[in-house]
Design a protein around this nucleic acid. Structure first.
Lengths: 147, 147
DNA sequence: TTCGGAATGTTGAATTTTCAACCGTTGAAG
DNA sequence: CTTCAACGGTTGAAAATTCAACATTCCGAA
């Protein structure tokens, strides 16, 4: 009578599993596209978030780019070494460090944005625009409800 | 006139981003639940896949548990050390190694399965059973179309 | 039969991530 | 004012992951 999943149900009934699998797949697709610029997906997220020209604190950026705090520190170290971003101590609160995009970073960010939009278009073609929009909407509310 | 995302759209329009964010969130939830047994999510997936009592080759298991090949080898090393699983060389094809669940592994797997089903129920409550079912369906077809 | 390429796993080095401890700064209570 | 708990970020050691190279086995073609 119940439709709740039973103990011997396949692992694919779990939302946690389906999300991990879908994320893995789509992430791989994006990864291979970004390989044209030799940039990992995490750096695309960082550059994308910074692409409006505003600076972000490490904390805000970590949350937006889906990275843990120490991981972001070290990723930013690499990106600074590559002259993609730079740090500025926040004058209003000297505990904070603001991250800004360099010109080089912005240029790279634009090229990456084109690649990422390509992927969006590709998925929309192969999967259908309407299901894709619906999926995005459902994911958005799931994230809201889980934060 | 077009509804295709523009270059300066926020990162949240990207399916790749929403999937990563949702996965991160749900994975964290599951992680904290599984912490009661001190087991990482990857080992839950492995034990879950093996819970039917059949053995799996490293390759099949890697695919099912969403792990890269060398990562799985090392994870299985740890699980063998913990007496959760064991290796048997496939008699039919001696290149292959079959992984089986020990009794201890099965018992742990049952406890983990209960925790994972708890999470499913929790999500269904907070998010709604119908949206959840729809989300699962959309993810399933996305995975099919992307494999 | 024998050879060579493909399939299956493992290994070790290098990279990356994580965990815990740390330092400097802030804000606010006493 | 002081003091002190909390915040924001970094660091170094430990753990996990990845990459490339490797060994073994299988299989098909010469």
């Amino acid at each position: 009578m119940s439709d709740s999943p039973s103990a011997d149900a396949p692992i694919t009934v779990h939302l946690a599993y389906l999300l991990a699998q879908a994320n893995r797949e789509i992430n791989r697709q994006l990864e291979t596209r970004l390989r044209a610029e030799g940039v990992p997906v995490e750096q695309w997220r960082i550059l994308k978030v910074l692409s409006d020209g505003n600076g972000r604190s490490m904390g805000d950026l970590a949350e937006a780019a889906l990275l843990n705090h120490p991981t972001l520190t070290k990723t930013i170290d690499r990106m600074v070494a590559d002259s993609l971003v730079y740090r500025i101590s926040d004058p209003g609160d000297r505990r904070k460090v603001l991250i800004f995009c360099s010109e080089r970073g912005k240029a790279l960010g634009r090229r990456l944005a084109a690649l990422a939009l390509d992927q969006e278009a590709f998925i929309a073609e192969n999967y259908g625009g309407k299901p894709m929009a619906q999926l995005k909407r459902l994911l958005g509310t799931l994230i809201e409800r889980s934060g």
